Simulated scan of single mutants.
Amino acid sequence: MKLSNRITSMQESPIRKLVPIAEKAKKNGKKVYHLNIGQPDIKTPKFFFDAVKNFDEEVLAYSFSQGIPELINSFTKYYNDYGIDFKPEDILVTNGGSEAILFTLLAVCDDGDEVLIPEPFYTNYNGFGREIGVKVKPITTKAEDGFHLPKKEEIEKLISPKTKAILLSNPGNPTGAIYTKEEVYMLGDIAKENDLFIVADEVYREFIYDGFDYISFGEVAEIEDRVVITDSISKRYSACGARIGCIASKNKTLIKQILKLCQGRLCVPTIEQVGAAALTNVTKDYFDKVVAEYKNRRDVVYNALKQMDGVLCEKPHGAFYIIAKLPVDDAEKFVVWLLEEFDLDNETVMFAPAEGFYATEGLGRDEVRMSYVLKEEDLKRAMEILAEGLKAYPGRK
């Protein structure tokens, strides 16, 4: 029987599709250092677990489709602490940031419409677009430019009558780039002048290094009616498994329409919402410690990569990812080879091949994305394995 073009044209996740190979390697006795996925090892704040343990209801009932009031109020407090004045009616709780992105694209785009996205980008942007018939038009950014945006006129050349939105992550996944205030306002001007939405994926808002300035699209009053922030507690509080995110926008018509999608999937799990609502009690010193820890980890990986012959990369200043160009014929083949055929004292390492983070054919073929989410000693070992693996790989360029 024939399956839909919608599903067969959707790409596999470059982050997860090689997991069966890694699992086979582990069953064969190898230790695998996972730098392929952004799963932090930082402890989830105890507030979450305490709230779940103290949940004392006789019936685990549906919650409101828009989210429980306690969690919505927690999100509004969080944004207000950043100087972003969202009201409870501006927020919808979602099953993670991924559902927030999917629901937003469903609400602002029709089949055949286009969305501009700086590449390399989070792979699910392309996957969700394919799923609902939306075409991704890439704004190509380059490592030698720190993955910053091209000039305004270059972006405007990509706009067509079918363009409905600009979607981007800030700080960036997979690049770690932080857009400057000038870039944020430039995109705001483009959105106003061409009647576009800006879908701002800001899940890495806390992870800023080296004193870089960060500005949220939610802070730009001139475009508040066309900004949609998609967010998540997953990386911020190291709570990926809770699957709690949100959509925040001052466009009341948009929020009202997306609520219909929320009603269609009934509700987000009640107990996870209860736990997430308690995270409003997390203090600033938690983030200070976490950011300092990630900066140290970034430095371990970046400094090691800069010592490897033929490896090219730029220092990322946000999130916890780095894109590295390797002296290999094909990064996916190299990652598979590391898992299947190479080890250093029965240990190997796994990365995400970066080609799947691009929409432009051919780009990223010799690049990998690394998530520096492991403790320092593990990252040092992973870099040792990579260095030796590059020396031994038969497809080295």
Results as ranks from 00 to 15, higher is better:
22 A>Y: 09
90 D>K: 04
353 P>V: 02
211 G>W: 08
209 Y>A: 00
109 C>A: 06
313 C>Q: 08
303 N>E: 15
154 E>M: 02
142 K>N: 14
168 L>W: 03
131 E>Y: 13
118 P>D: 01
7 I>E: 15
328 V>H: 01
317 H>E: 12
337 W>Y: 07
385 I>G: 13
329 D>G: 04
59 V>R: 09
383 M>L: 08
153 E>G: 03
362 G>S: 02
295 K>Q: 14
327 P>C: 08
141 T>D: 00
351 F>V: 07
296 N>R: 12
325 K>Q: 05
304 A>L: 04
72 I>V: 15
202 E>N: 10
289 K>I: 06
314 E>C: 12
29 G>V: 11
179 Y>I: 05
128 F>Y: 15
334 F>R: 02
237 Y>L: 15
245 G>L: 07
163 T>G: 06
166 I>W: 06
214 Y>W: 13
200 A>C: 07
86 F>Q: 01
31 K>D: 06
196 L>V: 08
364 G>P: 05
46 K>F: 03
9 S>D: 02
55 F>D: 04
250 K>R: 15
36 N>C: 07
173 N>S: 01
80 N>T: 05
206 E>P: 10
163 T>Y: 11
211 G>K: 04
30 K>W: 06
177 A>S: 12
381 R>G: 10
274 V>M: 14
357 F>M: 03
362 G>N: 00
39 Q>S: 01
384 E>H: 12
240 C>M: 13
34 H>A: 10
117 I>F: 08
358 Y>D: 00
105 L>K: 12
331 A>Q: 00
21 I>T: 12
333 K>M: 03
2 K>D: 08
91 I>Y: 02
98 S>F: 13
216 S>G: 04
370 M>T: 15
209 Y>R: 01
240 C>Y: 11
368 V>L: 00
218 G>F: 08
74 S>I: 09
272 E>G: 15
18 L>D: 13
118 P>F: 00
64 F>C: 06
205 R>A: 10
334 F>V: 00
20 P>Y: 05
318 G>K: 01
220 V>H: 04
89 E>P: 03
47 F>R: 10
12 E>F: 06
393 Y>R: 05
69 P>V: 03
130 R>S: 14
295 K>N: 09
381 R>T: 07
11 Q>F: 03
264 G>W: 09
226 R>S: 08
148 H>Q: 10
264 G>E: 15
283 T>G: 09
64 F>W: 00
312 L>F: 14
177 A>R: 07
103 F>D: 13
28 N>V: 00
357 F>K: 00
104 T>D: 09
4 S>L: 05
286 Y>L: 10
62 Y>D: 12
244 I>R: 09
232 S>D: 13
343 D>I: 09
204 Y>I: 03
25 A>W: 00
255 I>F: 01
80 N>A: 07
360 T>V: 09
274 V>S: 11
180 T>L: 02
146 G>I: 12
266 L>V: 14
230 T>L: 03
109 C>T: 15
95 N>S: 12
355 E>K: 08
54 N>H: 07
347 E>Y: 11
389 G>T: 07
74 S>C: 09
